[in-house]
Design a protein around this nucleic acid. Structure first.
Length: 809
RNA sequence: GCCGGGAUGGCGGAAUGGUAGACGCGACGGACUCAAAAUCCGUUGUCCGAAAGGACGUGUGGGUUCGAGUCCCACUCCCGGUACCA
């Protein structure tokens, strides 16, 4: 049994924080702001331990920064559009809005029970018209600026769910939810032109205080490469095609060229050739194949077109193949193939008996595969003898001065496909008129509201299309009959700017007041799961840059400092609903209290690492809190009034050293060692109290302990703070500063080593000199036994911590 | 394949190049109790030894250093990301 009634105490303080409004903030030019956000959750209905970990870290920081005097904004909201609500609607007939609001209500209750501090007056939910009208406004602004466009494109299609899937919902080529092999379909889709921002998105990664791996992931995702692009003419024809290469220095080694099966000139190229039928079969198979199948083949396949292309540098004729190892989606969808310097081309050439010409001299014996390293160019005409970089520069200059090609930069980043054929998302505010084409919904007509419909089942088009009242409208331009766009937006659009809406959540005239955004932005700390490393964090950076270019946001980067936490796993592996091993916080809060649960999340291990959940661990932190309670309530031993002794000074010094460590640990975002330090201090103080504490000393130790505990286990810390009459509201106290005089010890343990092995430890004065340290070391009887009959060759002194005596025969 | 991060007791994990294993969990022994729970005290890396003490010990093999879990080189395995990206 807990020694205190955690349930009553926790509810008491949660109510106090709420009625006192201590987390409610406004702009205050006189105070330094700190904007602290945990990624807003999808309202799935129940919070799990991953959420708890997230909000525990966030709240620790909110409270810590508040105590340090910052004006801390810590808001909360809901990423409340999305497929689960729609699936539930299909199954149960309950409207997704009703379903979602119910889930939000339930989760809000759970989150409040954790005691995390938020400014709830700023709560937002992306499914509410007051929010998503600004999604639509944002879409219109992107459209005005040429950053939103519609294009026919192959997309991921799940045959079982009868819907398109986002790339992130395709896991190893299968549908994340039902496991079906994902097909490709050509559909007309809306895109955001994120590729226009590729270079800025890459460059601005530099100044961010982000985990290195996230920066690397984004850099790879953007995938900048430098190379050359040039045209190749098809011999005996007026056709030609562009190729992109990062190795223009190897162009003399080109022995064939390859077109992607989807390349637009392919039909004209094979027209009337003897291989036409064979080629068409191959192309049809490639188009139909899923990504997995196409890659899983392993072996490279292709078809010779019967045509030849001209190598522009030497006029050589090279055979043109169609092969699915060349992708239409990257570069120009066509390549010059140089088997001597590219392993894929090598594999293809050896299979089909194509010539191989080496154009880089390997430094040593090298055979049986392509050579990718550096070396002097060979068999390369005027490039011979040049190393890779020089050869690249020379050939690009040659291509440019002869008007045959250009040096160019290519990105792997694709435009962001934002249309979804779903009901429960933000309607795209566009109207298709047979006369005028696509026409934007006038801003004054926003928001475009969802119609209530009967049947949410996906049938290959958005369920919105089944509502004639929604679909049929007058064209805003010519007034004639027109159709509304029925696709909705990717929910990543909603989440790409919600942190800006928090700065001015009630505004009904503007997406947000630029002055308010200017005060709060950028986020000083953003906390979330690493699964968003690329998608959300890249989209949000993009949208922030667009809004910056519209003069609405001063900063170019939304998230100054990012923390990505490791995942909580159960012993059976990753937590998931389907495995039935999801553990929620409720039962632990009921048994041990929110403070013990929070403390265990802090203590479980380094925040960046994943962790395996252990029920026993919560018992451990609960026991620790019990010990704090007994210490503070005098159960261990009542203190007395008396003069100060060495024992008193020693425990006070321990408290200040703990403060120094805890402060440093929190600043470094390492919480497990901070909790361990508080446990040590509590153990020391308990032993001290048991032997008869001096009242003034114990009070000071307790005062510091509770201040440090306040951001971690706020309920108990507040209760004890009040009971000990230290003050009425701990959360608004100042974070203490350690007394430097109490951080240094008078004496320290000096280690004496012989040949690097510890042979003795002695107490010495902290300010001992090198000479005296050596003298004391030599005087140690234990050490002398090890020196007997040996020659002292060297003495290393690191006073006052260590003396190492190096001896030999 | 490439990129990033790891490997320390029975377990989670601590250790600015200077006492390896803090703190916690578990386990064992004891106190309290009619008994149990809770709490408190003690022990807890391995091996040798009655003890004092000693030897060994941070994935593997080398190296640098008076001294290496920490730095360097080579490797093994694990986790995460990504992949015919020309």
């Amino acid at each position: 049994m807990a020694a205190f009634d955690h349930d009553a105490i926790e509810l008491k303080w949660q109510k106090r924080w709420d009625t006192d409004g201590i987390f409610h903030v406004t702009e205050d030019a006189d105070r330094t702001k700190f904007y602290n956000v945990c990624m807003y959750p999808y309202p799935s209905g129940d919070i799990h331990m991953g959420h708890v970990r997230n909000y525990t870290y966030g709240d620790l920081l909110t409270r810590y920064k508040m105590m340090q005097g910052y004006n801390v904004l810590s808001p909360f909201g809901w990423d409340s559009f999305g497929l689960p609500a729609e699936n539930a609607a299909i199954k149960t007939g309950i409207h997704p809005r009703v379903f979602t609001e119910t889930q939000i209500e339930r989760m809000t209750e759970q989150i409040k029970r954790l005691g995390a501090g938020y400014d709830w007056s700023r709560e937002i939910a992306s499914h509410r018209p007051s929010y998503y009208r600004w999604d639509q406004w944002l879409f219109l602004k992107l459209y005005e600026r040429g950053l939103a466009y519609k294009r026919r494109s192959p997309v991921n299609w799940c045959p079982t769910d009868a819907t398109v899937l986002a790339n992130e919902q395709v896991v190893d080529g299968t549908c994340e939810r039902c496991g079906s092999i994902v097909e490709k379909r050509d559909l007309s889709q809306w895109f955001f032109k994120i590729t226009d921002y590729a270079q800025r998105l890459l460059d601005d990664l530099e100044g961010l205080d982000w985990p290195e791996r996230v920066v690397v992931m984004q850099r790879n995702w953007i995938g900048r490469s430098e190379g050359a692009q040039f045209a190749m003419d098809v011999a005996d024809s007026d056709l030609s095609f562009e190729v992109y290469t990062t190795r223009p220095d190897t162009v003399f080694g080109m022995t064939f060229a390859v077109l992607a099966p989807e390349h637009p000139i392919v039909p004209a190229l094979i027209e009337g050739e003897t291989v036409q039928t064979e080629a068409e079969v191959y192309i049809a198979a490639a188009r139909a194949a899923s990504e997995v199948e196409r890659v899983a083949e392993g072996d490279k396949t292709g078809v010779f077109t019967g045509k030849y292309a001209v190598n522009p540098v030497n006029g050589a004729l090279v055979p043109i193949y169609i092969a699915d190892y060349v992708l239409m989606g990257y570069g120009t969808g066509a390549i010059m193939a140089v088997p001597g310097q590219d392993q894929r081309d090598w594999d293809f050439a050896t299979k089909y008996g194509i010539d191989i010409i080496r154009t880089v001299q390997p430094p040593h014996e090298f055979d049986g595969q392509a050579y990718l390293g550096d070396g002097p160019a060979i068999n390369s005409g005027f490039l011979d003898g040049l190393y890779m970089e020089a050869a690249k520069a020379a050939i690009i200059e040659w291509l440019e001065s002869n008007g045959l090609g250009v040096g160019t930069v290519n990105y792997r980043l694709r435009d962001w496909l934002i249309s979804r054929q779903r009901y429960w998302g933000c309607p795209i505010p566009m109207i298709e008129c047979p006369e005028c084409g696509y026409v934007a919904v006038p801003e004054s007509d926003l928001p475009v509201i969802h119609p209530d419909i009967e049947d949410y089942a996906p049938r290959g088009q958005s369920p919105l299309a089944t509502s004639p009242e929604f679909v049929n409208v007058a064209c805003p331009r010519c007034g004639g009959p027109a159709r509304r766009e029925t696709d909705t937006m990717d929910t990543f659009v909603d989440s790409s700017w919600y942190f800006l809406r928090y700065t001015d959540p009630e505004n009904s005239d503007l997406i947000f007041d630029p002055a308010k955004a200017a005060y709060w932005m950028a986020l000083d700390q953003y906390i979330g799961g690493v699964e968003h490393a690329v998608l959300h964090l890249l989209y949000a950076r993009f949208v922030t840059k667009v809004l910056h270019d519209m003069d609405l946001v001063e900063v170019e980067e939304p998230f100054s400092r990012l923390f990505t936490q490791g995942m909580i796993q159960m012993s059976g592996g990753k937590m998931s609903k389907s495995k039935g091993n999801v553990v929620g916080p409720d039962e632990f809060i009921a048994d041990y209290g929110a403070d013990a649960l929070r403390l265990y999340h802090l203590f479980i291990g380094p925040p960046t690492d994943g962790a395996v959940w252990s029920d026993k661990g919560v018992e451990g932190t609960a026991r620790f809190l019990d010990r704090v309670w007994r210490l503070a309530t005098g159960e261990v031993g009542e203190p007395v009034e008396r003069a100060e002794t060495d024992a008193d000074r020693s425990v006070l010094s321990a408290a200040h050293k703990t403060l120094d460590k805890v402060t440093g640990d929190i600043d470094r975002f390492v919480f497990n060692t901070a909790v361990a330090a508080l446990m040590e201090l509590t153990n020391a103080a308990t032993a001290y109290a048991r032997e008869g504490a001096r009242r003034a000393t114990l009070d000071e130790v307790l005062r510091l302990l509770l201040l440090m505990l306040s951001p971690m286990a706020p309920h108990m810390a507040h209760e004890l703070w009040e009971r000990l009459r230290f003050g009425s509201m701990l959360a608004t106290e100042s974070w203490p500063t350690p007394d430097p005089a109490l951080l240094v010890d008078e004496t320290v343990t000096m280690v004496i080593q012989v040949n690097g092995k510890v042979r003795d430890r002695i107490e010495v004065l902290a300010d001992i000199g090198d000479a005296e340290a050596e003298e004391r070391a030599m005087a140690s009887p234990k050490v002398q036994g090890w020196l007997e009959g040996k020659q002292l060759r060297k003495v290393i002194v690191r006073a006052p911590n260590l003396v190492n005596l190096v001896v030999g025969e």
